[in-house]
């Protein structure tokens, strides 16, 4: 490398590293790092978020999941401790997407009068790891910690 290239490389690397660090530190203080809203929050902020792309996270309400026959359309409720929100989605779901498990749905918020139309579904895993043999108590524990993260 000649000296001019070296200098460009030097300035480039410092700018990239500095930029990445600064962005991270500043977004840390703005709340932009919160990855999703809970159903309670989205209902409270409904009017200001209308028309915006949002992520909403919660538990897939037990017994609420309906799969249509003949296509990939599904309907379910996303719930936190207080609120529940009807969601529609069409497509493949991740393997951890199950009733009673955590989920994050992405889409445009339309005010909540109609079911939320999800474009993407992400399954959220809790921090609990339980062997197959002892699932019974494990399931209860996993649900508890998932609800805790949603507070």
């Amino acid at each position: 490398m000649n000296s001019k290239n070296r200098r460009l490389f030097l300035i480039g690397s410092v700018v990239v590293v500095g930029g990445a660090l600064l962005t991270l530190v500043f977004t840390s203080f703005t709340g932009a790092l919160v990855y999703f809203y809970t159903p309670t929050e989205i209902k409270a902020k409904s009017s200001e978020l209308t028309g915006h792309k949002v992520r909403i996270g919660g538990l897939v309400q037990e017994g609420s999941l309906v799969r249509e026959t003949g296509n990939l359309k599904i309907r379910f409720l996303v719930a936190d401790n207080v609120e529940r929100l009807p969601v529609q989605y069409e497509g493949m779901t991740p393997d951890l997407f199950r009733e009673g498990q955590g989920v994050i749905v992405e889409g445009t918020w339309r005010g909540g009068a109609e079911p939320f139309q999800a474009v993407t579904i992400l399954a959220k895993h809790s921090e609990d790891y339980v062997p197959v043999k002892m699932s019974e108590e494990g399931i209860a524990k996993a649900r508890e910690s998932m609800l805790k993260t949603l507070q």
């Binding site: 790092l33 919160v34 990855y35 999703f36 996270g57 959220k124 895993h125 921090e127």
Partner: peptide
């Protein structure tokens, strides 16, 4: 912050 990544175990 609320993240997709799970909290520490």
């Amino acid at each position: 912050w609320r993240t997709l990544h799970q909290p520490p175990s």
